[in-house]
């Protein structure tokens, strides 16, 4: 599993929120409802390679512990992350509050990190409206407010899991490509500037 990681993804959210299950489902394709809950200690690392438009991207995924005692140390794990999946449990309103805490933390310290707001355990609320404690519209509203994408997932059924990570990888590739493109453009404009007077700059607008 060692090797170069192209994209650092971090999962944050309240304990028992379903982060480990989400990653397990994504990396190993499994979910064990029988296994007793085991809180994560510190953080677990996993890597997965995906292909986006023929380009291979290695995701380095940090599944952090939700326990409060790690809060002061959480920077170790999210520092330099390009994407963050901020999870909350659709059946637990307090986990949504906790998600807001993490969003604020990220906004303050990791400006460049792209945030994905993720409502977990969708299978529990799918057929049971009463179990749902955070409604989709207010979650979506909040996501818009912080300009994040909003997804609801289920580790149990696999619903939206691949979709979520694929979206993350694609966004990354598109952003980096744009950036590379932007850099190239900048470079060439600089080069142009050096050689020619700055009037001839239509090129950039295309």
């Amino acid at each position: 599993m060692a090797g170069k990681v192209d994209l650092k993804v971090v999962l944050l959210g309240k304990e028992y929120g379903g982060k480990t299950s989400l990653v397990e489902r994504y990396i190993h394709g499994k979910f064990n409802a029988q296994a007793p809950y085991q809180s994560t200690i510190g953080a677990a690392f996993g890597a997965k390679k995906v292909t986006v438009n023929g380009e291979s991207v290695t995701l380095g995924i940090w599944d952090t512990a939700g326990s409060e005692r790690y809060e002061s140390m959480s920077r170790i794990y999210y520092r330099g992350a390009k994407s963050a999946i901020v999870c909350f449990d659709l059946t637990d309103p307090s986990s949504f509050e906790r998600a807001k805490f993490w969003v604020n933390e990220l906004k303050q310290t990791e400006e460049d990190c792209v945030i994905y707001l993720c409502g977990t355990k969708y299978d529990l609320v799918e057929d049971n409206k009463k179990a749902r404690k955070v409604d989709a519209s207010s979650a979506k509203e909040y996501a818009d407010e912080i300009s994040a994408k909003y997804v609801e997932t289920s580790a149990k059924t696999g619903y939206n899991i691949d979709y979520l990570f694929m979206m993350i990888a694609e966004d990354f590739v598109n952003v980096t490509r744009n950036k590379v493109q932007a850099n190239k453009d900048e470079d060439s404009s600089v080069a142009l500037r050096l050689e020619q007077p700055p009037m001839n700059r239509e090129k950039c607008k295309c």
Binding site: T20, S39, T40, G42, A44, F45, D63, Y70, Y77
Partner: peptide, 13 residues
């Protein structure tokens, strides 16, 4: 006391 190390590599204080 924790089986969580069995499933993935961990980095823990």
């Amino acid at each position: 006391a924790s089986t969580s190390f069995k499933s993935a590599e961990s980095w823990t204080p």
